[in-house]
Design a binder for these strands. Sequence first.
DNA 1: CCGGTTTATTAAACCGGTTCAGGAGGCAGA
DNA 2: TCTGCCTCCTGAACCGGTTTAATAAACCGG
Lengths: 361, 361
Amino acid sequence: MSDTSREGRVRRPTIADVAARAGVSKGLVSFALNDRPGVNVATRDRILAIAAEMGWSPDVRARSLSTNRSFALGLVLQRDTAIVAGDPFFPAFIAGVERELSPAGQALVLASVPPGPRAAETYRKLASERRVDGVFISDLRANDERLALVQSLGLAAVTLGHPDIESPFPSVTVDDVDGMIATVDHLAELGHRRIAHVSGSSEMLHARRRRDAFESACAGRGVDCRVLETDFSARQGAEATTVLVADAATRPTAITYSNDQMALAGVAVAQRMGLSVPADLSMAGFDDSDIARYVYPSLTSVATDAVEWGAAAARALLAAIAGLGFEDTELAPARLVVRESTGPAPSSASSHPPPRTARAR
Amino acid sequence: MSDTSREGRVRRPTIADVAARAGVSKGLVSFALNDRPGVNVATRDRILAIAAEMGWSPDVRARSLSTNRSFALGLVLQRDTAIVAGDPFFPAFIAGVERELSPAGQALVLASVPPGPRAAETYRKLASERRVDGVFISDLRANDERLALVQSLGLAAVTLGHPDIESPFPSVTVDDVDGMIATVDHLAELGHRRIAHVSGSSEMLHARRRRDAFESACAGRGVDCRVLETDFSARQGAEATTVLVADAATRPTAITYSNDQMALAGVAVAQRMGLSVPADLSMAGFDDSDIARYVYPSLTSVATDAVEWGAAAARALLAAIAGLGFEDTELAPARLVVRESTGPAPSSASSHPPPRTARAR
DNA sequence: CCGGTTTATTAAACCGGTTCAGGAGGCAGA
DNA sequence: TCTGCCTCCTGAACCGGTTTAATAAACCGG
């Protein structure tokens, strides 16, 4: 019955088993397996061969204990589930992270907490249990207290985007500003002179950044602009749109949104009110989710490569943990993808048609 | 400078520090902290107080090594990023999982791999490194070889849905069938006699189950039905819709989709061809993503409580690991949410309007 | 006051790796 | 032949918990 016990489970070989089989000490096996100098090449090859033959692989727990590293990185999601569910960012980001982590022998520990003070507790727990060597700090907020917290916990970290305060951590950034400027340019060229922006919470740095870019781009082009703030949800995107569109006299001819979910909800509100997109109203999203290409009218949006972002963030965090470089990384800027939902501004302010009653046509 | 070393980092107290401070042995501290019987109550309270005062918390690595458990559960995502990105299921599922795991002192290890053979490798790695005590097996496929693999790796597991083969693991299921039957019922009541279904890959058990429910519901009601198979992506949802709608003579009066992304893309295709939803064509999704409520026309869909599903799956997996119950769990069935995208069938087959050329209105 | 049981506690082994001080052996130079 | 210096390898300590066997102390009925 070989080395199978009663329960049918095989006892995994340990480094001691490999050592015994190879007729050397545990320590030497460890050296050989970690490619440390001072091991005779022939011996090393023999040990490696035997380890492979026995199907040995290191127990990350034991390794963690002795090296005082966890070989795992943490990501704490602290968004409302409805918002994170509609957001294409995280799955793509995670795929990119994983692409780097997996070959590096690292794992990703994901924690999901409702927004609020429980997030701090989660970071604290991750650190005190020594689950992870470092964390990704996403969804940066204004004056984000997580920076100090994570530093005090002794964790390595990388921030997604530049914090608005002094940060001890490297950042990995995709610049939204260009994309937003390009959007305003695009609309201005189409003749729009009154543009609104439906922003995410200004507590969130990326929302604020998009909004600031929007406002300064408008100012620079003599465009009349207006901003409404939301929580990023489709619901509030719809509500903001209703407010913007309600008064035909002050109605903007184009609306940009801080994400695609809100833009899609906004398009629906406009259509429901009998407005034609883009003939009466141009609308643009942000993030370029997959569905943006497939709705009708297809949605003009700003695309960022979240997979690449995840990969770059993972590389930066691994480097920080290894005590290597600490430079900030700037990825290719977000770029505008023009589709059907933006078009020429209505020829005159008086051209808006009488609102029809809401009915699915 | 108290117990702070040069680098400003505080040395975490270990169980030995607590023992020394309390004047007892390491072992006794361990007993006290794990609520084991045979410890004097007064002593136990004193140890607990001292541990709390010193800010001690267990190092999960050390604990893992001695107890031979990892205190972590794994989830392997093996979907294409474009598909997982548009799918509201996982973020919600993960939130539910986390809700149970966190209080239980467990962590979630997430691995994301491209679809294909690399998934097996990932499970193998998770097991051989001893990263996790058990895994969630999601997106069950026909004759899913992961069951045997995971069992041979000695991992505990729970499947999301019932496998089509003998399974050594408990399952946690939300029954889709009722929701699909309700959808067909709803459409049949509205007078639809020719209904199509755009299915996900029939390799995927949940897609197949929805499709089978669709077909048998149609058969039971004398409804003419047709099924097109896709990979769940918005792109293929759009393509399938184009095929279904192309020939006005054989065009169905209603289409159901195996997820909301495809349904949204399908609605767009119909609108683009000048068809009115639901006047000319009723369309229904599946999964009830948040955005379904906010598009125009709002999308009839089938809702499952993914958060609850995650929580139940986590409980089941924890129970399995603890060697407790092994019963399957059946959650509240998916339910139909009727919105604007479904309506009465067109009065006669000849009523379909001449297709207009595609233009954003 | 004694033998036996229960309760509270300790010391040490153990989990599976890493790391470090040192030792054996070979070789070169004096 | 002695010394010094490599190279290759060993043995043991160590990481921070858990667990077990052994022991000391308290208790208890007769």
